[in-house]
């Protein structure tokens, strides 16, 4: 059992890790085909995994409805939305699902006039959250937050016409903040991230990091 659950996954991780690392340096068609095959496997597995995800979602909400846990009414909407979408998806504008997807069907309508606006509504909340988060952060209580406040005010002013109206130097200073200290910090983080990613990949390839298989070491 340990062989199946531990050894085989570790061998697969090692072989595929080394193989794909080498693949990056080999431009030959055979190497490109290998990448394509592996990517195709990934897409196939992802396709099947959708069923697992759907099962998880429906099972969870069915349990919530059955046990009448707090807010179980929302779970009915999950089923309602899924069934309606499935019905119109299968109907495919009267051509049924075994034909190519038809345009301008009720399925499209649900997507464009329900899902997209609902998503946009959630996204629009971000503006208010930015304002509230900015209010909390920009209180000049410490030296660091004061620097942050000053930098933020300059960058904000430099990005709107009134900044240039007050002084032509404000947009220039804003650009300098973005191009020099901001970029330097960003690159510093990226360098650290890249090294961390290399170290993590290596740990997984040589099998000393096994926690992703479950159970720590």
């Amino acid at each position: 059992m340990n062989f199946l659950k531990r050894t085989i996954p570790l061998v697969v991780a090692f072989v595929m890790g080394v193989l794909m690392a080498i693949q990056y340096y080999v431009p030959h068609r055979i190497s490109q085909d290998l990448l394509e095959v592996v990517s195709r496997w990934d897409r196939i597995i992802a396709g099947f995994a959708v069923f697992i995800g759907a099962y998880s979602l429906f099972h969870l909400h069915w349990t919530r409805i059955k046990r009448k846990v707090e807010g179980w009414g929302y779970s009915i909407f999950v089923y309602f939305g899924a069934i309606i979408t499935l019905i119109f998806g299968f109907l495919n504008g009267g051509k049924f699902f075994w034909n190519d997807k038809q345009e301008g069907t009720m399925f499209d309508w649900l997507y464009f006039y329900v899902q997209v606006p609902a998503g946009a509504t959630i996204f629009s909340i971000l503006a208010f959250f930015i304002a509230s988060a900015a209010y909390r952060t920009f209180r000049a209580r410490t030296k660091e937050s004061t620097i942050l406040l000053i930098a933020a005010v300059i960058v904000m002013m430099g990005r709107v016409p009134i900044g240039n109206y007050i002084s032509q130097y404000i947009p220039a200073v804003a650009d300098w903040i973005m191009a020099v200290p901001n970029l330097a910090a960003k690159r510093g983080i990226l360098l650290g991230v890249s090294l961390g990613a290399i170290a993590t990949s290596l740990k997984i390839i040589i099998g000393i990091e096994r926690s992703y298989l479950g159970g720590g070491d």
Binding site: G53, S56, L57, T63, I122
Partner: peptide, 12 residues
């Protein structure tokens, strides 16, 4: 049931 999928799209 405590490790579950809630939605596959970003804003949902």
């Amino acid at each position: 049931d405590n490790v579950f999928l809630v939605a596959s799209e970003q804003f949902p």
